[in-house]
């Protein structure tokens, strides 16, 4: 496998969930609300047609949206309640996927968050999600 070209200024994202570690690594830059992420698509992430698997895109969405929700809540315990995804275009092995998650609204017990995935500036995938902050009515 060719070593991925990580953009200058990016660092490896600290992952704690075994499934995220299993499909990672993911890299990030910026702090807090301006934190952005990249994934280099490798041979593990693609299907037999050579395109990234939809499951990997949704896993990356869950990972990055979860990080954004954490950032917005001082690392509150939270779970994904719902996610809506659209698959606009395939990404291929070696592509660098950039993710900019954003919080769209926060209430006492819920957080709404969305993200766009781009490859070389072209939109390939979007996700919108709702998160529940545990233990808050």
């Amino acid at each position: 496998m060719i070593a991925p070209a990580i953009p200058p200024g990016y660092r490896e994202t600290r992952l704690v969930d075994p499934f995220e570690i299993f499909v990672g690594p993911v890299y990030e830059t910026g702090e807090g609300a301006s934190r952005r992420f990249v994934l280099v698509v490798d041979a593990r992430h693609v299907n037999l047609r050579g395109g990234i698997h939809g499951g990997m895109l949704m896993t990356l969405a869950d990972l990055t949206l979860g990080a954004a929700v954490w950032d917005a809540t001082d690392n509150a315990a939270c779970v994904t309640m719902s996610m809506q995804t659209q698959f606009l275009k395939a990404a291929r092995e070696g592509d660098l996927i950039e993710v900019c998650p954003q919080i769209t609204r926060r209430t006492r017990s819920l957080v709404f968050a969305r993200c766009d995935f781009t490859v070389a500036g072209e939109l390939i995938f979007t996700a919108a999600s709702v998160w529940k902050l545990l233990g808050r009515d």
Binding site: D17, G55, T59, A77, M83
Partner: peptide, 25 residues
């Protein structure tokens, strides 16, 4: 299995979405 889990000890949402994606495909 262990590799499918999150740190809270439940199956990761990404794995469940991946499973549904494979099943629907």
């Amino acid at each position: 299995a262990e590799k499918h889990m999150n740190a809270a000890g439940t199956v990761h949402g990404g794995m469940l979405m991946s499973f549904v994606d494979v099943a629907m495909s």
